[in-house]
Simulated scan of single mutants.
Amino acid sequence: MGLTGCAQERLTSAEIAREGAAVAGSALLLSDSSLGVSAANAATGTGATAATASTPTSAPISHLGLLRQLGGAALVAYALYDPLAPNWTITVQPESEAVVRLVLTMRSLTTGGNGESWRIFQRAAQKVTEQRDAKSYQLLSYEEGVESTRPFAQRYAVGTLRLVY
């Protein structure tokens, strides 16, 4: 009974088997309050099932339900963050036959990558130069900053190139 972490006094072997690995895995995540143990019960040494008229106790939480909620929250966080998505999106805007404008925008939710815009811009400029069969490029302008949009700020970098043929 101690390993299952349940707030019930006695469990049958079928109940223990039904909870299974979910109970053992979630035992580390649970606190006394989630098991229905109040401060009054902890002080007197009684469990969550011993309810007195003066101290109400909370209902025990199903460990399987708790794991489902945590899994759902993790799935929502993964969908919002998406760690496999690239940090920067690059847009190539031709202004004339020899002049190209590169616009880099960083995704809103990211961990790190704040100082890499110049290196990514250089790689993108080199790639555009190779794709258009130019010998090299000449940097006409470059600007980077942070656009304060709501709910999240977004880094950007903008540069203009003249392709040398």
Rank of each mutant, 00 (worst) to 15 (best):
Q69A: 08
Q69S: 13
G71S: 11
G72C: 01
A73K: 02
A73H: 00
A73S: 05
A73E: 05
A73I: 05
A74V: 00
A74R: 03
A74L: 06
L75I: 03
L75V: 01
V76G: 01
V76R: 04
V76N: 01
A77H: 03
A77G: 09
Y78V: 09
Y78I: 03
A79L: 06
L80H: 01
L80C: 13
Y81K: 06
Y81A: 10
D82E: 13
D82L: 14
D82K: 12
P83E: 11
P83M: 11
P83A: 15
P83W: 14
P83G: 12
L84V: 13
A85K: 01
A85V: 06
A85T: 02
P86A: 02
N87H: 10
N87S: 12
N87E: 14
T89P: 04
I90K: 02
I90T: 06
T91W: 02
T91S: 04
T91D: 02
V92H: 03
V92L: 08
V92R: 01
Q93P: 00
Q93I: 03
P94S: 02
P94G: 02
P94Q: 00
P94N: 03
P94E: 04
E95N: 09
E95R: 00
S96Y: 01
S96W: 00
S96R: 00
E97M: 04
E97I: 05
E97N: 09
A98H: 13
A98C: 08
A98M: 07
V99F: 00
V100D: 07
V100S: 08
V100N: 05
R101H: 11
L102T: 11
L102Q: 07
L102V: 07
V103W: 06
V103E: 13
V103G: 04
L104Q: 03
T105G: 08
M106D: 14
M106F: 13
R107K: 08
R107P: 02
R107V: 09
R107S: 08
S108I: 00
S108R: 13
S108A: 15
S108M: 09
L109F: 06
L109N: 06
L109C: 07
T110E: 06
T110Q: 11
T111A: 14
G112Q: 10
G112R: 05
G112T: 02
G113P: 02
G113Y: 04
N114W: 13
N114Q: 15
N114C: 08
G115Q: 10
S117I: 10
S117A: 15
S117F: 10
W118Q: 14
W118K: 10
R119M: 14
R119L: 14
I120F: 06
Q122K: 13
Q122G: 05
R123M: 13
R123N: 15
A124K: 08
A125S: 15
A125T: 08
A125Q: 12
Q126Y: 12
V128A: 08
T129E: 11
T129S: 09
T129H: 08
E130A: 15
E130R: 05
E130K: 04
Q131N: 14
R132W: 03
D133F: 12
A134P: 00
A134I: 09
A134W: 00
K135T: 15
K135G: 12
K135M: 10
S136N: 15
S136I: 08
Y137M: 01
Q138N: 12
Q138M: 10
Q138K: 03
L140T: 03
L140A: 07
L140I: 11
L140G: 02
L140W: 01
S141H: 05
S141N: 07
Y142R: 07
Y142G: 07
E143D: 15
E144I: 07
